[in-house]
């Protein structure tokens, strides 16, 4: 049971990291775009999802979401045996994406004006500007807070136990209630969380060392 739990936890973490990064990037771009409606939508998204706990969203996608879907899709979802995991992925994604977009947006503000101007004058169109010039710098400049966020997200996978997704925390509770050997299971689970969080943190520090050098230099130069 523990092993399945670990598998599901890692699966949840991996999927939600990617999806929330994607969604967060989209929202961040919306929030820094010139089009007013997009900006407003982005802001509304962030305000809603940041000011209501992640746990609520996980529960929301489990209980409410299937009900409000039309054409009986909801019933089909409910019948799907792994739906708790899917709901967990959705809940964690929307929650984490709001943080990611906030972080990325602050990264955009840290990029000196000259970068955009340089990109424009070398003839890149708006999409190209983002892909080749702005986004890479946004990610690099915000690597440490993004990393912290991803570790948070990893810990938040434990929220999915509330909707009976069979991840690690849920597994330990099952063990506790079935065999009363909760102490061992909880100790193991805690060690696993701490260990993996540590691994994630060190990966981020290494990434930072590899990627950040040039950014740090140019940022200081422009600040004078």
């Amino acid at each position: 049971m523990i092993i399945t739990g670990i598998k599901i936890t890692i699966l949840l973490m991996a999927i939600t990291s990617v999806t929330s990064l994607l969604l967060g990037t989209v929202v961040a771009i919306m929030r820094i775009s010139r089009i007013k409606i997009l900006r407003a939508l982005g802001t509304i998204y962030v305000e809603i999802f940041r000011n209501i706990p992640g746990l609520f969203w996980v529960i929301f996608f489990y209980f409410i979401f299937p009900e409000i879907l039309p054409f009986g899709w909801g019933a089909r979802l409910n019948a799907y045996p792994n739906y708790p995991v899917v709901a967990g992925v959705m809940g964690l994604t929307v929650d984490n994406a709001s943080y990611v977009s906030d972080i990325l947006r602050s990264g955009r503000l840290a990029i000196p004006h000259g970068q955009r101007e340089a990109a424009i004058s070398s003839g890149l169109n708006r999409v190209q500007q983002y892909i080749y010039v702005l986004l890479p710098q946004m990610f690099r400049a915000t690597l440490p807070p993004l990393g912290t966020r991803m570790v948070h997200n990893f810990k938040n996978t434990s929220l999915c136990m509330a909707i009976t997704a069979p991840e690690l925390t849920w597994a330990t509770q099952q063990i506790e209630s079935l065999t009363f050997r909760g102490i061992e299971a909880t100790t193991m689970a805690t060690l696993f969380y701490v260990g993996l969080a540590g691994v994630m943190a060190s990966i981020i520090i290494i990434l930072e060392k590899v990627l950040r050098i040039d950014i740090a230099k140019s940022a200081y130069q422009t600040r004078g």
Binding site: K155, N156, T157, L159, M161, G182, T190, Y193, G198
Partner: peptide
């Protein structure tokens, strides 16, 4: 600091809920 920050809150809550009584 690092251990607590790396542990999910739910885990902490369980520790205190189930094992503090012991």
């Amino acid at each position: 600091i690092e251990i607590v920050r790396a542990t999910p809150l739910i885990m902490l809550i369980f520790w205190f809920y189930f094992f503090l009584p012991y």
